[in-house]
């Protein structure tokens, strides 16, 4: 499994690990029942604390994306595709909410945000 940590990023390390594993699941690079590296070996590989990887794995387990089988290791869970899409939607909504909140805090108005969104979506369709 290839992960890359951006140490200058504002996003904490555990979240980067979490998000990159999720991305790989959504993109199909990681498939159900694929085994993840152990917490300790991933910590070594990425040069982060054990507790940092543990936190990422705990979160992923709570969200139902991975499953720990004692004595065997961590695996990607098998779940139906629509659930994956739902996850993606929830995730997208959450990210968008954070973005919008910070934009509004800095003074961007509702219609300006709508305008920007529409522009981006239109560009993509062309």
């Amino acid at each position: 499994m290839e992960l890359f940590l951006d140490r200058s990023s504002k996003e904490p390390n555990y979240l980067q690990i979490e998000n990159q594993i999720k991305d790989q699941v959504y993109q199909g690079k990681l498939k159900p029942s694929d085994q993840l590296p152990s917490i300790r070996s991933l910590a070594r590989q990425l040069n982060v604390a054990i507790i940092t990887v543990k936190r990422a794995y705990d979160d992923l387990e709570q969200e139902g994306i991975i499953q720990t089988i004692p004595g065997k290791g961590c695996f990607i869970r098998s779940f139906p595709l629509h659930q994956l899409e739902q996850q993606l939607e929830i995730e997208f909504k959450r990210n968008l909410e954070t973005l919008i909140l910070s934009a509004r805090q800095r003074g961007l108005k509702k219609d300006q945000i709508e305008e920007i969104l529409r522009k981006i979506l239109d560009q993509k369709e062309e």
Binding site: S38, R40, A43, R44, N47, I50
Partner: peptide
């Protein structure tokens, strides 16, 4: 540092 990581496996 890497030896310490190895030890912590």
């Amino acid at each position: 540092l890497d030896l310490l990581y190895e030890y912590m496996q």
